[in-house]
Structures are given as structure tokens and as C-alpha cells.
């Protein structure tokens, strides 16, 4: 009971911070919109090479953009926890009886809410550009966005609080996000890749989410790809939350 209340207190505090700096929410959204406008139109030509596919280029590309949005929106949240550590506001909360799990969960749920809202905006913009996809598929894609955000933001907070230095945290993130971006098939479907690259890509969790959302966007729900995506998404979220919780609950942070 008290954990739920604590979580809601932290969640609302994070939302209040956003309302004071709304410009960051727009900046986070602007990147995928730019990709949509300046990169998306080229895809319809490129994807002709990928004969096996059904659906328009937008149905292939927007799922990637959704994952990209979640990747860059959630991976960097750890910086805020470093700032909270430095200003002492983290310590000031840790010395109260507040649940330490709630200190993490309130933040994570805030990020999930923000990313879901941004995803809806992105999908609406894509519809303007020409995306057509079944509503159920879009709803399923939002579930994947929520799972991915939950995973990445838990990991980012946990790592941020463990490292506590921007100078160490920043290079780790850069490497991780670029690798995930390239290997997940966000930009182009991995079916275009040579087989060794395709195999490497299968080692990264995002690959399964991107493929699953692509299936959902063309209305194929009962596929092994969707099932795999759900399994990977749920498993990753559970593991990441556990790791983040471990760091937040350590007695000596």
C-alpha cells in the first residue's frame, strides 16, 4: 500500500519537473519527427529491394522510429538521477522511510508515460505522412514501447546511480545506444543485412521488439515473431527492473 503511494508521489514529482521544463519533451520528440520527414521518404525506394515484405515503407519504418524514440528517450534518463544525487535531493529522500523501490519505480513509470505520449504524437504525425496501420497493431506497438522504456530507464537509473559521474556515464551510453541502434534493424530491416550481421543482430533484444512491432503494424498478430517480441520485452523489463531495484535498495549507495 505504502509502496504504491510512495511511487505515486515520486511519479507526480517527476511530472511536475516536466511541466517546468516542457522544452525537453519537445526536443525528445523532435528527433524522430525529423527522421520521419527527412529520412522516411527515401525508404519507399530502398525497400523495393526487399521483395518479401508486405505493406508500405511507412509500416516498416515507423515501428523502427518508435523503438528509436524509446531508446533515446529512456537510455539517457540516468543523467537526472546523477543530478539528483549531486544536489542531495536523492539523499534527502533516502533518509526518509520512503520505499527505495518506489524511488526507482516512480521515475520509471514517469518515463513510460512520457514515451507513450510521445509515441502517440509520432504515430499521428506518421499518419499525416501516409502511414496506414490497424488500430490493434498500434495498440500492441504501444505495449512494446512501454516494456522497452521500462527496461532501458530502469537500467539507466541503476547505472547512473552506481556510477554517479557524468564523465563515466556518458561514454557508456554512447557506445550502448549506437550499437543497439545499428544492430536492432531500426533504420532498415535486418532482412537486408548479410547473414553474419543478421546473426549478430539476433543477440540484441531490440531486434525482436522491432520485428514484432513491424508484424503488428501489418496486422499479423498470431506470429512467432510477435510471441518472441513479447517474451523478450517482458523478460528484459523484469531483469532490468530487478537490476535497477538492486542498485536503489543497496544500503551503501
Amino acid at each position: 500500500m505504502s509502496v504504491a503511494r510512495d511511487t505515486s508521489l515520486i511519479f507526480r514529482r517527476q511530472v511536475r519537473q516536466d511541466t517546468r521544463n516542457p522544452v525537453w519533451l519537445l526536443i525528445g520528440l523532435s528527433q524522430p519527427i525529423l527522421y520521419l520527414a527527412f529520412f522516411g521518404p527515401m525508404l519507399s525506394r530502398v525497400l523495393r529491394a526487399d521483395e518479401g515484405r508486405t505493406g508500405s515503407a511507412w509500416q516498416v519504418y515507423v515501428p523502427g522510429l518508435l523503438v528509436q524514440l524509446a531508446l533515446f528517450g529512456a537510455a539517457f534518463v540516468g543523467f537526472t538521477v546523477i543530478a539528483d544525487w549531486r544536489t542531495g535531493s536523492m539523499e534527502r529522500m533516502r533518509v526518509t522511510p520512503v520505499s527505495r523501490f518506489a524511488l526507482l519505480m516512480g521515475r520509471v513509470l514517469h518515463d513510460v508515460a512520457v514515451l507513450l505520449a510521445q509515441s502517440v504524437v509520432l504515430i499521428l504525425a506518421a499518419v499525416v505522412f501516409g502511414l496506414r496501420a490497424p488500430l490493434a497493431g498500434i495498440a500492441l506497438s504501444l505495449l512494446f514501447v512501454a516494456l522497452l522504456t521500462c527496461s532501458l530507464s530502469s537500467l539507466s537509473y541503476g547505472l547512473g546511480l552506481a556510477v554517479k559521474r557524468e564523465t563515466a556515464f556518458s561514454p557508456m551510453l554512447n557506445i550502448a545506444t549506437v550499437l543497439l541502434l545499428l544492430l536492432s534493424g531500426i533504420l532498415l530491416p535486418m532482412s537486408l543485412a548479410p547473414s553474419w550481421l543478421n546473426d549478430v543482430s539476433r543477440l540484441t533484444p531490440l531486434r525482436y521488439l522491432v520485428d514484432a512491432i513491424r508484424d503488428a503494424f501489418v496486422g499479423r498478430f498470431a506470429t512467432a515473431t510477435v510471441a518472441e517480441g513479447l517474451a523478450v520485452g517482458l523478460g528484459l523489463a523484469a531483469l532490468s527492473l530487478a537490476a535497477g531495484t538492486y542498485v536503489f535498495c543497496r544500503e551503501n549507495v
Binding site: 517546468r20 521544463n21 526518509t96 522511510p97
Partner: peptide
């Protein structure tokens, strides 16, 4: 009660908000 070296109020938050939240964190 514990007041650390750097304090603990968030620079962006409002004074009243911080005091109220802290009381709620103390349940």
C-alpha cells in the same frame, strides 16, 4: 532528520512543494 552538506532541495522545485512532498515521504 538529516540535512546533508549540499542540502537536498531540487533547484527547479517550489519551496512549498518540497516541504509538502517531504512530509508525505514521511508517510
Amino acid at each position: 532528520g538529516y540535512v546533508g552538506q549540499g542540502g537536498g532541495a531540487h533547484p527547479d522545485a517550489l519551496v512549498g512543494e518540497e516541504l509538502l512532498l517531504q512530509g508525505e515521504l514521511y508517510r
